[in-house]
Nucleic acid binder design. Structure first.
Lengths: 212, 212
DNA sequence: CCCTGGGCCTAACGATCGTTAGGTACGGGG
DNA sequence: CCCCGTACCTAACGATCGTTAGGCCCAGGG
C-alpha cells in the first residue's frame, strides 16, 4: 500500500520481468489509483490515466480488477479493515482508560500518516460506491465509532473522563483526528509522531483528562 | 443561496415568466449545482444534469456562467466570503475571550447548517479549481485560520485559555467543527442550534476554559 | 517440447463529456 | 411600433469516458 507513495511516473516495466508476486502487482495498482483519486477525485481520473501512471495500458487494468469501482473499493477497504483489526483492540489493552484512548489516538494518527492517499479517498469518495458496497464500508465505520463511544461511557463511569454527550464527543474527536489528513504533509512543521503525541494530549484535554 | 436547498425537481419554468431578478436566477442555479456537486462530486455531475435539475437545457447555463468551473467557484466563494465578513468580526466584539470564541464557534456551526451543500463542496472540491482560482480561495481560508490562531495566543496571554500549540489547536478545532457537515442532517438527534451550543462548549473545554 | 495461463497489448464500441453556433420567444423602453 | 436584451432553445463539434474483444509474449510445469 505505502509502496508506491511518491509521485513516481511510469516505472517503464520491461516485458519479461514479473511483478514480484501476483498480489503485489494488484496492491501496486491500487496504490497508484489511490494517489490519483486523491489528487483529482474518483470521477476526475480515467482508467487511462491510472494505467499510464502504472506504466501499462487501460485495458490491462481489467485483468486485475472487474471495473473501476473495484479499484476504489479496494483503496477504501485498506483503511477500514485496519481500523477494526489494528486500532480497536488497543481499547482492550493494558493501562487505564486515559492510556488506552491515547494509544488509539496515536495509532490512528500514525495510520493516517502511513496511508495518506487511501485515507483521503476513504473519506471523500464514498459516494462513488454503489449502494451495497457503500453499506459494507459503513458497517465497519460505524463499528469503530460505536466502540469508541462505548469506551468513552466506560471512562466517564470510571471517573477518568468528563463529557456530557459521549456520542457527540466521539464524532467531534474523530473529525478532529481525521482532519489531520486534510493538511498534513510529511515535510511540515511537525512530524507525524509529534502530531500523534499532541493529538493524544488534545483529545484527553478535551475529555477533561489532560495532564497540563 | 439557501433558496432552492430542498431536492426539488425541475420547477417547470414557463417561457414568459421572468426569474424575479437577474442575480436571483444565477444564485438559484448555483444552489442547484451545489446540491449536485455535493451528491456526486464536481466531476461526477455533467452540465446536462445540472441543467435538467434546474429545468433548462445544458447550453442555457452558458448564458449565466462562462464555464463549469465558474459554477464551482461561485458555490465555494459563498462560504469563504461569509467566513471573513460575518465570522471574523465576532472575535473583535464584546465579552471576554471565552465568550467571543464561543460566539465564533456558534456562528460557524450555524453557517454550516444553513449552507450544507456549499460547505461540502467548499471542503471537498477545491482541487477541481484552476491554480489561480484555488489561490484566491486559499487566501481567504488562511486569513480565517491565522486570525483564530492569533486570537488563541491572545487568550492564552490573558490567562483565559490553556494551550501548548495555538497553531495546531486552531487546525484541530476547525477540523472538529467542519466535521459537523460530514454527518449532520436536519432530522438528526440534535438540532443545529443545540449542536452550535455544544460545540462551543467542547471547544472551550478543549482549551481548558470549560465551565463544567 | 508443448501447453497453459498470467500479464500485457491494439483497436474499437457506444455513451457522455464540456462547449459552441445560431436561432426563437418575450417583456420593456424609445 | 420597433428594437434590444434576456432567457432559453435545438443541434452539433471533438474529446474522452468505461469497457470489451481478441491476440501476443514469455515463464514454468508436465
Amino acid at each position: 500500500m505505502a509502496a508506491a507513495e511518491p509521485g513516481s511516473a511510469a516505472p517503464a516495466r520491461r516485458p519479461g520481468v514479473p511483478a514480484r508476486r501476483s498480489g503485489d502487482r494488484r496492491a501496486e495498482l491500487v496504490a497508484v489509483a489511490s494517489r490519483l483519486f486523491r489528487e483529482h477525485g474518483y470521477h476526475g481520473v480515467g482508467m487511462r490515466a491510472i494505467a499510464e501512471a502504472a506504466g501499462i495500458q487501460a485495458a490491462s487494468l481489467y485483468h486485475h480488477f472487474m471495473n473501476k469501482e473495484e479499484l476504489l473499493l479496494e483503496a477504501i477497504f485498506v483503511v477500514d479493515r485496519d481500523l477494526i483489526v489494528e486500532q480497536l483492540p488497543l481499547l482492550d489493552g493494558p493501562g487505564d482508560h486515559r492510556e488506552r484512548l491515547a494509544a488509539l489516538v496515536r495509532g490512528h494518527v500514525l495510520h493516517i500518516g502511513d496511508h495518506r492517499n487511501a485515507w483521503w479517498v476513504a473519506s471523500r469518495e464514498l459516494r462513488a460506491l454503489s449502494p451495497d458496497r457503500l453499506d459494507a464500508v459503513q458497517v465497519y465505520r460505524r463499528r469503530y465509532q460505536h466502540r469508541i463511544a462505548e469506551f468513552l461511557v466506560d471512562g466517564v463511569r470510571a471517573g477518568e473522563f468528563r463529557c456530557e454527550d459521549p456520542r457527540l464527543a466521539t464524532l467531534a474527536i474523530l473529525d478532529m483526528i481525521n482532519g489531520v489528513n486534510e493538511w498534513y504533509v510529511p515535510s511540515g512543521r511537525l512530524g507525524i509522531t509529534e502530531l500523534a503525541e499532541r493529538y493524544a494530549r488534545m483529545v484527553l484535554c478535551q475529555l477533561g483528562a489532560g495532564k497540563l
